[in-house]
Every structure is written in C-alpha cells, then in structure tokens.
Lab assay of single mutants.
Amino acid sequence: MNLTVNGKPSTVDGAESLNVTELLSALKVAQAEYVTVELNGEVLEREAFDATTVKDGDAVEFLY
C-alpha cells in the first residue's frame, strides 16, 4: 500500500488496507498513544482509529 505520510511517500508492504491502529503499529510510530492522526485532511478522534480504514493513495499526518 502506497501512502503519503507526513508529506513523504511511504509504503506498507503486504497490505491493501489497514485501520489507523494497525497502521500506527506497522509504521512503528513512537508513542502512538499520544499521536493525533489526520487522514486526508480530517483530524480523527482516537475512538475512531479502529473503525477508520486507511487505503492505498491516502495522505496521513501524525501530529505530536
């Protein structure tokens, strides 16, 4: 899956889609429990991480 992460191209191997929690784990995001996630310009509530799917071509920003 090809994404733009914090403005840079990134690839997650072996996945066509992941939820936000899985993406944080796959990318080994440090202190993931404290990060705010913006997906395609929309800031996500932490409670929505498990239910929100990240797909090929999406833009993700991790805000600390």
Rank of each mutant, 00 (worst) to 15 (best):
Asn2Asp: 05
Asn2Phe: 11
Leu3Ser: 02
Leu3Gly: 02
Leu3Ala: 03
Leu3His: 03
Thr4Glu: 04
Thr4Pro: 02
Thr4Lys: 08
Thr4Met: 12
Thr4Cys: 14
Thr4Val: 11
Asn6Tyr: 00
Asn6Arg: 02
Asn6Trp: 00
Asn6Met: 05
Asn6Phe: 01
Gly7Pro: 02
Gly7Asp: 03
Gly7Ile: 05
Lys8Pro: 01
Lys8Asn: 08
Lys8Gln: 11
Lys8Thr: 09
Lys8Trp: 11
Pro9Thr: 08
Ser10Phe: 15
Ser10Met: 15
Thr11Ile: 13
Thr11Phe: 15
Val12Trp: 07
Val12Ser: 02
Val12Ala: 03
Asp13Cys: 15
Asp13Tyr: 15
Asp13Val: 15
Asp13Asn: 13
Gly14Trp: 14
Gly14Val: 09
Gly14Met: 10
Gly14Asp: 07
Ala15Gln: 08
Ser17Thr: 12
Ser17Asn: 08
Leu18Ala: 03
Leu18His: 03
Leu18Gly: 01
Leu18Phe: 07
Asn19Arg: 06
Asn19Ser: 15
Val20Asp: 00
Val20Tyr: 03
Val20Gln: 00
Thr21Ser: 09
Thr21Asp: 05
Glu22Lys: 08
Glu22Ala: 09
Glu22Leu: 07
Glu22Tyr: 05
Glu22Phe: 04
Glu22Asp: 10
Leu23Ser: 00
Leu23Thr: 01
Leu23Ala: 01
Leu24Phe: 04
Leu24Ala: 00
Ser25Gly: 08
Ser25Cys: 13
Ser25Trp: 10
Ala26Leu: 14
Ala26Met: 12
Ala26Phe: 14
Ala26Ser: 07
Leu27Gly: 01
Leu27Val: 04
Leu27Gln: 02
Leu27Asn: 01
Lys28Phe: 06
Lys28Gln: 10
Lys28Cys: 14
Val29Ala: 04
Val29Asn: 03
Val29Asp: 03
Val29Leu: 07
Val29Phe: 06
Ala30Trp: 13
Ala30Lys: 11
Ala32Trp: 13
Ala32Phe: 10
Glu33Tyr: 07
Glu33Gln: 11
Glu33Gly: 09
Tyr34Met: 10
Tyr34Ile: 12
Tyr34Arg: 10
Val35Cys: 09
Val35Asp: 04
Val37Ile: 08
Val37Asp: 00
Glu38Arg: 15
Glu38Lys: 15
Glu38His: 15
Glu38Pro: 00
Leu39Tyr: 04
Asn40Cys: 04
Asn40Val: 01
Gly41Arg: 04
Gly41Leu: 03
Gly41Ile: 03
Gly41Glu: 01
Glu42Trp: 07
Glu42Met: 14
Glu42Gly: 05
Glu42Leu: 13
Glu42Arg: 14
Val43Pro: 08
Val43Glu: 06
Val43Asn: 05
Val43Lys: 12
Leu44Tyr: 04
Leu44Asp: 00
Leu44Asn: 00
Glu45Tyr: 09
Glu45Lys: 12
Glu45Thr: 10
Arg46Ile: 05
Arg46Pro: 08
Arg46Gln: 07
Ala48Glu: 10
Ala48Ser: 10
Phe49Gly: 03
Phe49Thr: 00
Asp50His: 08
Asp50Ile: 06
Asp50Glu: 11
Asp50Val: 06
Asp50Thr: 08
Asp50Tyr: 06
Asp50Gln: 08
Asp50Ser: 10
Ala51Lys: 14
Thr52Phe: 05
Thr52Lys: 06
Thr53His: 11
Val54Pro: 01
Val54Lys: 01
Val54Met: 04
Lys55Thr: 08
Lys55Met: 07
Asp56Lys: 05
Asp56Tyr: 05
Asp56Arg: 05
Gly57Arg: 05
Gly57Ala: 04
Gly57Ile: 01
Gly57Glu: 03
Gly57Cys: 05
Gly57Phe: 03
Asp58Trp: 03
Asp58Cys: 06
Ala59Glu: 13
Ala59Phe: 14
Ala59Asp: 09
Ala59Asn: 13
Val60Ala: 01
Glu61Val: 13
Glu61Ser: 10
Phe62Leu: 13
Phe62Tyr: 07
Phe62Asn: 02
Phe62Gly: 01
Leu63Ser: 14
Leu63Trp: 15
Tyr64Val: 12
